[in-house]
Design a protein around this nucleic acid. Structure first.
Lengths: 230, 230
DNA sequence: AGATTGTATCTGGTATACCAGAATCTATTC
DNA sequence: GAATAGATTCTGGTATACCAGATACAATCT
């Protein structure tokens, strides 16, 4: 008999249950939708979603359960499932939690990451070293997110990575919006530079403090400018 | 007609869907079970659970979905759903995340909590001030957990509270076990006293640092003594 | 007309039937 | 007797039927 490991079989349909499919579709729909633009609540209809996705209610419900657990939707018995609008207070809370986790990741990164890994941080974002202001703000928004994700991944703590990625899904939009307000982007870049230096020097206390304060700064910023959230 | 608000009607069956019931039952069963005592994996049978709980598979499955999301069980298609045994590495990671969140909560508590609230911390744990060693270890274990929960609640950040409470469910057992190893309990008490003092003095940087290091100490302790986890 | 009540309808919650993959057992083959 | 092929059984995944609460609307009464 032929051993299957002689081939490099790429799984045709890969691994994805309908539930996972539904989950990803719904999550994408929710995160891409501009929740805060509209005034009234957005209601999701299980049966309609089932039809649109071409599956039965069961996997849709399971996907909605996960999304509810992650804080994206709220389900009221016999009334409907609604997309959750986060309050400013909740957003600020998430940023605080994020700051806590990322600063711990920075500390761990100083202890665990290789020199090459830490160096890659600087190479990933050369533009930080050129004083360019908020011209290419769109590209920078993405680079900004990637920067923080990179720090978290360098911490090599899976729990922190998971918790953070969930938080990020909720605050991604806000984070990019904040960059366009006041002098946030310039300030942000300068702080990033400092953070990179501290990490490269493996000054864990410094890196930890800088990352935390950077996060707290964002929280304060949102607290000041984020009135559009409510 | 009689207005219903003239009565103080207490809802008979209260509010609990079968799914919630099943969730709580299963969670209690899992957390009370000594997972690390037995060698082989624990498998949960949906149909059997349905029978035992007296409900259909549907609410049981939804409960299992939530538990899977929280990291208590893992579901393999057409093979079964298993209670997850955390590896030592994962436990240490959770403690790191916990330490990050709690230290942020301590900082926030310094800024937000009232004097009375901070004072209550000391009053809740008078035994910390008497040099008693690990005699009343059982009571102390509970007090230990409550202490940390109290700090987190004083931070008044709901996100941090929620994330922490989930982590706590996973680490509770280990945390108490650790107290009985080495001189962990004596060390722990001393650090608690320092933390209380810093909080009362509203020295947020100090409190933050102490809480973080206390958590990191536990992580290191588990890393050293926690071989029984695997 | 306004308030009220009855009813049709819509919603998520639950129960159940069925499916296909995986594991186990059994009978056949060499 | 060991190996293999087939069938049985068990599992979670999915689809569907039904239920009861909630809502909206229409019929009714005052």
């Amino acid at each position: 008999m032929v051993k299957s490991d002689q081939f490099n079989i790429t799984p045709i349909v890969a691994s994805s249950s309908l539930r996972t499919l539904a989950y990803e579709a719904l999550k994408a729909a929710i995160t891409n939708m501009d929740i805060y633009g509209r005034a009234e609540e957005v209601r999701l209809d299980e049966r309609k979603l089932s039809q649109d996705l071409g599956v039965s209610r069961t996997p849709v419900r399971e996907a909605l359960t996960v999304l509810e657990q992650e804080g994206f939707v709220r389900s009221e018995a016999r009334r409907g499932v609604f997309v959750i609008k986060k309050t400013k207070k909740e957003i600020v809370g998430m940023i605080h939690a994020w700051a806590a986790l990322e600063s711990m990741a920075a500390r761990l990164a100083c202890e665990r990451a290789t020199d090459a890994q830490l160096k890659s941080l600087r190479e990933m974002f050369p533009e930080f070293y050129e004083g360019r202001p908020s011209e290419h703000i769109d590209e920078y928004s993405d680079a900004n997110i990637r920067f923080h994700q990179k720090i978290i991944s360098l911490g090599q703590c899976e729990v922190i990575e998971d918790l953070s990625s969930n938080l990020l899904m909720h605050v991604r939009g806000i984070r990019n919006t904040a960059l366009r307000q006041g002098d946030r982007s310039e300030k942000s870049i300068k702080e990033h530079v400092q953070i990179i230096k501290a990490l490269e020097a493996r000054q864990k206390e410094v890196a930890e403090t800088l990352v935390r304060d950077h996060g707290l700064g964002l929280a304060a910023h949102v607290n000041t400018y984020g009135d559009y959230l409510e």
